[in-house]
Computed example of a mutant assay.
Amino acid sequence: MMSPSNSNLTSSTAFLLYLAILLNVVSAHNFSKLFQCNWAPDHLVDEGDQIKLTLDTASGCGFGSKRKYLFGKISLEIKLVEGDSAGTVTAFYMSSDGPSHDELDFEFLGNLSGDPYLVQTNVYVNGTGDREQRHTLWFDPTTDFHTYTLLWNHYYVMFLVDGVPLRVFANKEEANVLYPKNQAMGIYGSLWNADDWATQGGMVKTNWSHAPFVSTFRSFKVDACEFSPENGTVIGKCSNVRQYHWDKSAMNGLSKHKSQQLKWVREKHLVYDYCEDTVRFPEPPKECLN
């Protein structure tokens, strides 16, 4: 049996660990704590615990984080545009600034009613993208909220949906493949019209009689290293980024369970992979080689 003194000590230790976790993870039910509207504020509705992005013939809209981050785990919940959303794109992504930027994209491509949503992911490194993958989802993303996560560490970038890995972009610098690791990125979300390409290659245009189109975001969680623009370094404990759980050596690779999930997603839901597009890439990109 544990003595009262040991019990108190254990409780105190547990509380300190819990407090440390809270200090490292910023969870915002209030949108304005972490973000601000950076495009068409009259089309963004802030309801405190969630926000609604709207798109009509006048404009779409978007938001961005007040800070930038270098490595971390970013997640939020989204409920996508319902019904006929053809031509619209809802996006959740991270990006640095400038033409030689790094960027990690979730883009949800609108559909005709009854057709599946397509989720396009992309990775830009030093201004070069063209690394698209497209998937269907195993649920209807318009009827309820689902969690979308970007996990970015020294080993890989992982795109997750409800905790299931959708895609992994591994660090293959040993094979002379560029990897995003030097540019701090902001966190962004947007809803916009892209009917020149978004649905069936642009063949299906936006039906504006269904406007306004609405996507809803909530439950923003940022467990990441904040970047200081003043001195060009990460702040505080992030000066030793490897101490974070998402960047420890144990994260160098997927668990057996995650590997099985990723295999299932590729077999059942992958509809396009740039690595297999021999028209665009007669010679496979280096990162596509095993």
Score class of each variant (00 low, 15 high):
V45K: 06
C225H: 02
G163D: 06
G83R: 09
P212I: 11
E47T: 05
D84Y: 06
E230M: 07
F106D: 05
A91F: 01
K268L: 10
K256T: 13
P165W: 13
A170N: 12
I21W: 07
M251C: 13
F281G: 06
L160V: 03
N153M: 04
N176K: 09
A28Y: 07
D49I: 05
E82L: 02
L254Y: 00
S75C: 11
D105S: 04
L112N: 07
Q133T: 15
L44G: 05
K68Q: 15
G98Y: 09
G98P: 05
N207L: 05
Y69K: 07
N193C: 08
F220G: 02
D105E: 04
W246E: 08
D247A: 15
I78Y: 01
K286H: 03
A184H: 10
K256A: 15
Q50P: 00
P285V: 13
Y244F: 15
K79E: 10
R167L: 09
D102A: 02
I187H: 02
S215M: 06
L289N: 12
S219L: 05
V265M: 11
S228Y: 00
V168Y: 01
N182S: 15
K205S: 12
T10F: 04
S249L: 12
V177N: 06
Y272P: 03
W39I: 01
D144Q: 14
G60T: 10
T88M: 07
S249A: 14
V204S: 09
Q260E: 13
P229T: 13
S215H: 01
V123W: 01
